[in-house]
Amino acid sequence: MIKKNKILVIDDTEDILEALELVLTNGGFAVDLATKEERVYEMMAGHEPLPDLILLDVLLSGQDGRMIARKLKDNTKTKHIPIIMMSAHPDVEKTIHKSGADDYLAKPFEMTGLFSKIHKFI
């Protein structure tokens, strides 16, 4: 059996997480969901298996996704993981590059757009 690539989705909106889980599972990926950055720290500490790609919301409740991306890219264990940031805020895109994230997707998006971004990396 071929091992599925795993995508970690971090978003503070349950509806988005559920929809993305369905879309990504249908797309043939293993999916892991998180609403907070704590999961990232567990990954960095080696307590959690690493995903093959992370879909990360820019503005999480009380947390800035760009800071989380920066931490992931500054950590030797996680810096190789591709990060695609997502946001419903227009104009956020130009603030993404400093975070070290690999790509950006504006919400709402087409499934084809989502998959073409993912397939650039895995």
Partner: peptide, 21 residues
């Protein structure tokens, strides 16, 4: 605008899943 786009995003994804299936 941010709050409106959140349900629009999931609505769009669900619509596309249904279309695909």
């Amino acid at each position: 605008s941010h709050e409106l786009k959140t349900p629009i995003t999931s609505l769009k994804m669900y619509g596309q899943i249904v279309h695909q299936q």
